[in-house]
Amino acid sequence: MSNLFYNAAPQETRIAAPQKAARQYPAHKPKTVYLFGTCVVDLFFPEAGMDAIHLLEREGINVDFPQDQSCCGQPAYTSGYTEQAREVARTQVELFKGGWPVIVTSGSCAGMFREHYPDLFKDEPEMLAKVQELADRTYELTEFLLHVCQVQLTDQGEPLQIALHTSCSARREMNTHLHARALIGQLEHVERVEHDHESECCGFGGTFSVRMPDISGAMVADKTQALQASGAQQVVSADCGCLLNINGAFDKQNIPLAGQHIASFLWQRTQSKQEPST
């Protein structure tokens, strides 16, 4: 299926796929936001969560991080454990009350909040209203920096070629690749290089990589080899699940590349000499 048309239909009778209405962004930055760090960031990439906080605080925004937050429920949901996913979702919804925007360091987790929580509770009117309200104030980090904060980044680093990887669900549900491209495009000394398989899944897919290891391994091999062939000196992504998979494959194949979360990349590239490094 293409992005615009169902290919199975004859040329003269193709039906355009439904298009989402453009999101309306607030005219002013909020004073306070919540940060949903995601379980993968919390366990494996804590520096990405801290750097996301640094980026938001530099915009004059207070950041609240509820300590009881956990997984968004996506692994259970995509594995068919609907009731368990609902249980996780109820807990998260209760933690993020109060109307502040919720900033998420992963496009796939933000997509879970915005796209799939309403589906989980479509038969529970009271809960549906709560999750829809949460969905309406949920933003992926790069989306929020670009469209709400309207950041203007000043590059402080040396010339660098990077390749961008965006998770397939983040690309599909949150347009994260477009937001990341726009922010990276503000960095004067950074060149983003194209690579084959850019829009394809890295093979992680949460439990997919466990259930289908041979297929997953073949997919990440294609991905990492394409990244190496691009000539990029570094890989940047907004999704740490993908980074776990891609970095692990780099190590296994002895490919001298490493992936970094975009929050850390942007923070490190744009610090002035007066700003702390951590």
Rank of each mutant, 00 (worst) to 15 (best):
T176V: 10
G206V: 08
E198Y: 05
T224V: 15
Q234H: 09
Q186N: 09
T207A: 02
G217R: 14
S169R: 13
S169W: 02
M174T: 13
A232G: 13
L187S: 08
I215Y: 14
L178I: 11
E200C: 04
S167M: 11
D222K: 15
A170E: 06
R181S: 15
C202H: 00
A218F: 00
I184P: 02
S199R: 12
G217F: 07
D196E: 12
T207P: 00
A182P: 13
H179I: 00
Q186D: 01
E194A: 11
E198G: 00
A182C: 09
S169I: 08
D222S: 14
T224C: 07
T176P: 00
G203D: 03
L183N: 00
R171V: 00
A229N: 13
R181T: 12
H195C: 10
G185K: 05
H177P: 00
V236H: 02
H189F: 11
L183F: 03
G185E: 10
M174A: 12
D196F: 09
R181K: 15
Q225K: 11
R171A: 13
G231D: 09
R172C: 08
L187T: 03
A180K: 04
G203W: 05
T176R: 00
F204G: 07
C168E: 03
A226R: 06
R171L: 07
G231Y: 01
F204I: 03
E200V: 01
S216V: 07
D222P: 03
C202Q: 05
V210M: 14
G217Y: 09
S167D: 12
G217L: 10
E198N: 12
D222N: 15
A229E: 14
R171G: 04
P213A: 06
L183A: 01
D196Y: 05
Q228A: 10
C202L: 05
V190Y: 09
V193H: 05
A226W: 03
S230T: 01
C202Y: 01
G185F: 08
Q225A: 07
S199G: 06
P213N: 05
G231C: 05
S199C: 02
G217A: 15
L227H: 08
